[in-house]
């Protein structure tokens, strides 16, 4: 059952560029130099109930604008959309009862009052029955470890604590869809990990549909099976994650520390040029390779036997690189 249907959704912003200097400012008074900016450009897709969809793209690609339209904050310039049977903008007040939203950059809670007061207020806003509210708070407090935070005002929380409270707040009314805009931005590894685990559980246990925007390809990998990539407002990929990760020509990098001196030249010869080694220092190298040609395991097994390896870490290609690659070479594989 599809819960989100978007067809040719478009948002155009009109901005005006200020001219320089005093004469420019005076000219601006009479005639403004308007520019059209198409932030979201004829995007179409559907989301099925229970999906965990990654909505990704570089900065300024139109991710947030899309999310704002889907959550009913922003009026689309043109195109159709239907979420849970509602038009998000036109039927905003009824529609928002059924969705939860978390912006990593901005809290949805009331700044000056204790977290639990925010929760109580939200329960009233969403008309959550007392009994159900108590049950929900208990359940969420346990998973997200909220008990020590409930009586603290939001302004005194750390970023990680705040995000946990925001997540709990967005789920109090048992929404059918959860929209998350960069939910783990600025968190440390442990923080990120606990949020991801939580999202996986929510999605699996309650069947809540989750739409997630992020910069972090690792996050996408851990959570989503399907991704939508947008760039310059256009949808450039909609399909499985595996195809993107194994794009031919997409380089991955391994950083290797040795316990003795090593030369890149020697290793380049060993693999016959299939891998490019870059010397960082006497004992530290970067190997960059294409996963379609050789796997990380193959590389490491060949090296570990012959050289004294001290430490290894594998870096995933970042999202900008993936997007650039798809954009340049245009393998727009719209999975039906």
């Amino acid at each position: 059952m599809s819960v989100i249907k978007v067809n040719n959704l478009t948002k155009t912003f009109y901005t005006f560029s200020r001219r320089e200097g005093i004469t420019g400012a005076i000219k601006d008074l009479f005639r403004r130099d308007y520019r059209e900016l198409v932030a979201v450009d004829h995007i179409s897709f559907e989301v099925q109930e229970g999906e965990l969809l990654g909505y990704i793209g570089p900065n300024g690609a139109g991710k947030s604008t899309s999310i704002k339209m889907l959550t009913g904050i922003l009026k689309p310039t043109s195109g159709e959309m239907e979420v849970l049977g509602y038009h998000p903008f036109n039927q905003r007040q009824n529609y928002t009862r059924h969705i939860g939203v978390v912006f990593g950059q901005r809290t949805q809670l009331w700044w000056d009052i204790a977290v639990v007061e925010s929760f109580k207020l939200l329960a009233k806003i969403y008309d959550v029955p007392e009994k159900e509210y108590k049950l929900k708070i208990k359940e969420l407090s346990e998973i997200l470890d909220l008990a020590p935070l409930l009586n603290t005002p939001v302004r005194k929380l750390s970023l990680g604590q705040r995000i946990r409270c925001d997540l709990a707040a967005s789920l109090l009314h048992s929404p059918s869809i959860l929209f998350l805009d960069e939910p783990t931005i600025g968190l440390d590894a442990v923080g990120k990990d606990s949020i991801r685990t939580f999202l996986r559980e929510i999605n699996a246990n309650t069947g809540t549909t989750i739409i997630l925007t992020t910069h972090d390809l690792k996050e996408i990998e851990e959570l989503c099976k399907r991704i939508i990539i947008i760039d310059h407002g256009k949808l450039i990929y909609d399909g499985g994650l595996d195809r993107v990760k194994n794009l031919p020509g997409l380089k991955r990098e391994i950083s290797i520390d040795f316990s003795g001196d090593i030369s890149a030249k020697e290793l380049n010869n060993l693999f016959g040029g299939r891998i490019e080694f870059k010397q960082e220092s006497e004992r530290h190298l970067y190997a960059s390779f294409s996963p379609a040609e050789i796997t990380a395991v193959e590389i490491l097994t060949s090296i570990v036997g012959k050289y004294p390896v001290a430490d290894v870490s594998i870096a995933e290609p970042d999202i900008e690189e993936v997007v650039m690659k798809i954009y340049r070479e245009g393998i727009t594989g719209h999975a039906a």
Binding site: E49, G85, R97, H98, H173, S176, A204, N205
Partner: peptide
């Protein structure tokens, strides 16, 4: 567990659960 396979009866859309009057 794979999220897509979880379609138990609890996951019906909550529209019916709350009043949608204006």
């Amino acid at each position: 567990m794979q999220p897509e396979t979880v379609h138990n009866n609890n996951s019906t859309i909550n529209i019916l659960k709350y009043p949608t009057t204006g």
